[in-house]
């Protein structure tokens, strides 16, 4: 046991002082998408809705509704339309209300169907 004590002391602290210092390894993690509203029309919104396996997306008239709380950051929407959907880089998703996790993206391109 003294050897394990010495081993622990020798190794020291390896955890990050987060959030005082950013955790660099988080940069490589998959993050929920960010949508470029100007590049998304109703047809593309419907396509994105269809490829989302966790039902985090649906279209409501001229808006794409994105429920971040349902998103698993699987990347399927980004693969389907890389010109319109990019990784947000945002992984700190805590909110004080469930409703704050639901975002409305107004579709600027194309007509509502």
């Amino acid at each position: 046991m003294p050897l394990w004590f010495a081993r622990g002391i020798r190794r020291g602290i390896v955890t990050t002082h987060y959030p005082a210092r950013p955790e660099r390894s988080a940069a490589g993690l998959p993050t929920p998408p960010a949508f470029r509203a100007a590049s998304i029309d109703a047809a593309l919104a419907d396509r994105l809705t269809a490829v989302c396996p966790s039902q985090a997306l649906h279209r409501d008239g001229a808006a794409l509704i994105f429920d971040v709380g349902r998103c698993t950051a699987c990347g399927r929407c980004q693969e389907a339309a890389p010109w319109a959907v990019t990784p947000s880089g945002e992984f700190e998703l805590a909110a004080t209300s469930r409703a704050h996790l639901v975002k409305q993206i107004r579709l600027a391109a194309g007509e509502d169907r």
């Binding site: 394990w4 004590f5 081993r7 190794r11 390896v14 490589g28």
Partner: peptide
């Protein structure tokens, strides 16, 4: 506990390699 921490450091490094 120290052995657990040592194994978890290795685990964390392996998970970062995966990422």
């Amino acid at each position: 506990a120290v052995g657990q921490a040592a194994a978890e450091i290795a685990l964390e490094l392996l998970l970062r390699v995966n990422a």
